[in-house]
Simulated assay, not measured.
Amino acid sequence: MSLTLAFDVYGTLIDTQGVVSQLEAWIGDRASGFSQCWREKQLEYSFRRGLMNEYKNFASCTRDALEYCCQSQAVDLSEAQKQALLACYARLPVFADVKQGLEALQAQGHHLYAFSNGTAEAVDGLLSHAGVRDYFLDIVSVDEIATFKPDPATYRHFLRRSSSKAEQSWLISSNPFDVIGARNFGLQAAWVKRSDGAVFDPWGVEPVVTVSGIPQLAAYLK
């Protein structure tokens, strides 16, 4: 049976730690910690804006989070360096398993969508640069309804845009908050555990399946 698959992008298909190499040139062995702080604050700002109903797009959250990390970690980056880091977000790499997995899922007849907190324009450019845009029927962005995952409205919006039913739709994400949000809404969901040390939030809501990469999801759904 063909399923509708909604792929989270940042952290699931795209490696947000791809900025580390650029950071290392400027701040050395502090780069990894800085990058992690940036990612965590980026997500926190999206959550807070969603709760406050004070929407600004994901690029704005990313920009504000970078400013916070520079201040909190006492890293003095020039404006040109900050702009270079933000530009890195337009050309982050996919994880090594992604193309093989997407190709297998497409061959199985599933309907693949990118479903992101990022704007459709940003995600389109990112996936195109990474060479995986053609696997997706469409890009569904929360920007279209001015809120962020895991707001239930975002999953409802996805079903509407993809003309799919909850019982036939899967959310695939490396972010536990996204998986829990989707399961809470009534979607099927797979957690992509991208590192051995990743911990799923102990909320009593579990993914249908946990996989280490996209090919393992294809094997499960075959």
Rank of each mutant, 00 (worst) to 15 (best):
W203V: 15
A59T: 11
P176A: 10
K41Q: 15
L171M: 15
V75S: 09
L105Y: 01
L43C: 09
Q42H: 12
V208H: 14
Q71H: 14
P215T: 03
I180N: 01
L102P: 00
H157E: 00
C61F: 03
F185Q: 02
L85W: 01
A120Y: 00
Y155D: 04
Q36V: 10
S173H: 07
A59P: 01
A107D: 11
Y89F: 14
I139H: 02
P207L: 04
S78H: 12
L217W: 04
S169T: 15
E67D: 13
K82H: 09
V192P: 00
C88L: 13
L43T: 08
D151A: 14
A189G: 06
T16M: 11
D64P: 00
V123M: 04
H111P: 00
L171W: 00
R194L: 07
D201K: 12
A74H: 15
E67A: 14
A107H: 10
G11Y: 07
A146K: 11
I139L: 11
S162L: 05
L77G: 11
C37N: 14
Q100A: 15
S21N: 12
D134P: 04
V192Y: 03
G186P: 03
V208M: 15
G33V: 05
W26P: 04
C70W: 05
N57C: 10
Q17H: 11
T4Q: 02
I145F: 10
A153H: 05
H129C: 08
V209G: 00
F95Y: 15
G118T: 06
N53P: 00
T16D: 09
S32M: 12
G50F: 02
I27Y: 08
N184Y: 03
A80S: 15
F58P: 00
S72T: 15
A74R: 15
V94T: 10
N117F: 03
A6V: 09
F177Y: 13
E40P: 01
A31C: 06
D76L: 15
D201V: 12
D134C: 13
Y155I: 02
S164Y: 08
D196A: 15
D143N: 14
D143G: 12
G125T: 10
T210M: 08
L86D: 09
A166M: 06
G186N: 01
R48G: 09
E206P: 08
L77P: 01
L43N: 01
I145T: 06
R183M: 10
K165M: 12
L127S: 02
G118Q: 03
F185E: 01
L51P: 05
A31M: 07
Y55L: 06
M52S: 13
Y113W: 14
W191Y: 07
R49W: 06
N57D: 14
R30K: 13
L85T: 01
W191N: 01
V98N: 05
P215H: 10
Q216S: 14
E67Q: 11
N57G: 12
Q188G: 09
N175P: 05
F148N: 00
E24M: 04
